[in-house]
Design a protein around this nucleic acid. Structure first.
Length: 276
DNA sequence: CCACGATCCTGCTAGC
DNA sequence: TGCTAGCAGGATCGTG
C-alpha cells in the first residue's frame, strides 16, 4: 500500500518525464468519482494545455504544479499506480485516467480498486489541504520536541490511531506505523500522554529512521505486487519488515511470536514482549 | 475528545 | 477442483 516512501519513490520516478511537459489530452476517465468534484469533461478542459512546472509530494499526495497556479493532486490510496507509457499504449482495464503529454508519452493512472483520486485544486484549495495535514516527518522541523508537543495535545489518543491520522503526522500508513512502533519498543495501544521524554525521542527516531531506510529501498512491495513504481519496478523494503505481516513468526529481538490484533480498525502487528 | 462502524471497490484467500 | 463469502486497506463521515 502506498505510504510516504512509496509515494516519494513514485514521485521521483515520474519527475524527469513530467517536468516541463504540457498536458495535451485527457482520456479514459470512465469513473466519475476519480476526478470529483469536477465532472470528467470539465476536469479535462481545465487540465489540457497546462504545463507541469513542479512535481512534488506532501504526505501521501503527489502534487503536479501547473502553469496557471493550479495544483493537480493525485492520491494513490491503497492500490493506485502511476506509469509513463508511450501514447500509443492501450490503457489497462484498470486504468481510469490517461493524461497525454506533448512528448509522445502518457501518464496512466492505474486504479484497480477505484479508490485513487485526482483532484484539481486552486492555490487556495491546496493551501487548505496543506494546512489540514500534519508535519512532514522527514522535514528538519519535525523534531522530537515538536512531536512531544503534538502528543501532549492529544493525550488520550492511542499511538496507533494517532500515527495513522494524517492530520497528526503526514505520510505514515499501516505498515510504517507498525514498523516504527516496533523499533521504538512502544505498544500500539499506549496513550500518547503516557510517553516519557525518552520514549518520545525513541518514537521520533524510529519514524525518521524507518522512513529513510524505506525510501532508500524504494518502498515496500509485498507478495501481492500491489505497489510498483517507474516502469514496473518493485521496492525492496519488504524483506526488511520486522513485524508487519509476520504474525506468529518469532520476534527478531526476543523470539516471542509476533501478534496481530485489530487496533484502530487496522490489523496491527507487534511483539507483545518488546513493545510496552 | 476519542472509538467504532460503515462506506467505497475488487483481487485474493480461506473455508467449505 | 470449484465455488463463494469475507477480508484488506486510506480517508471520510456519522454515531455512540
Amino acid at each position: 500500500m502506498p505510504e510516504l516512501p512509496e509515494v516519494e519513490t513514485t514521485t521521483r520516478a515520474l519527475r524527469p518525464g513530467l517536468l516541463g511537459r504540457t498536458i495535451v489530452g485527457v482520456r479514459a476517465i470512465d469513473y466519475v468519482p476519480l476526478v470529483e468534484p469536477l465532472p470528467p469533461e470539465a476536469f479535462a478542459a481545465a487540465v489540457c494545455g497546462r504545463r507541469v512546472l513542479g512535481v512534488g509530494r506532501r504526505g501521501k499526495y503527489i502534487l503536479l504544479r501547473l502553469d496557471d497556479g493550479a495544483v493537480l493532486s493525485i492520491h494513490l490510496r491503497m492500490s493506485g499506480r502511476l506509469h509513463l507509457l508511450p501514447q500509443e499504449a492501450a490503457p489497462d482495464r484498470h486504468t481510469h485516467a490517461v493524461l497525454d503529454l506533448d512528448d509522445g508519452q502518457a501518464l496512466h493512472f492505474y486504479v484497480p480498486r477505484k479508490f485513487g483520486r485526482m483532484r484539481l485544486l486552486t492555490g487556495e484549495e491546496y493551501a487548505v489541504l496543506d494546512g489540514a495535514l500534519g508535519p512532514e516527518p522527514l522535514a528538519p522541523t519535525f523534531t522530537a520536541a515538536s512531536l512531544q508537543d503534538r502528543l501532549r495535545a492529544r493525550p488520550r489518543a492511542r499511538l496507533k490511531a494517532l500515527l495513522l491520522d494524517q492530520r497528526f503526522l503526514a505520510g505514515l500508513g499501516n505498515i510504517y506505523v507498525d514498523e516504527a512502533l516496533f523499533r521504538a519498543r512502544l505498544h500500539p495501544l499506549r496513550l500518547a500522554g503516557s510517553l516519557s521524554g525518552g520514549e518520545v525521542g525513541r518514537l521520533h527516531g524510529a519514524v525518521v529512521e524507518v522512513l529513510g531506510e524505506a525510501i532508500t529501498a524504494e518502498g515496500t512491495t509485498l507478495s501481492d505486487g500491489v505497489y510498483l513504481f517507474g516502469s514496473g519496478e518493485a521496492g525492496r523494503f519488504a524483506e526488511r519488515l520486522r513485524v508487519y505481516g509476520r504474525t506468529g513468526e518469532p520476534c527478531i529481538v526476543c523470539g516471542m511470536p509476533v501478534v496481530r490484533q485489530v487496533i484502530a480498525g487496522r490489523g496491527s502487528h507487534f511483539c507483545p514482549r518488546c513493545q510496552v
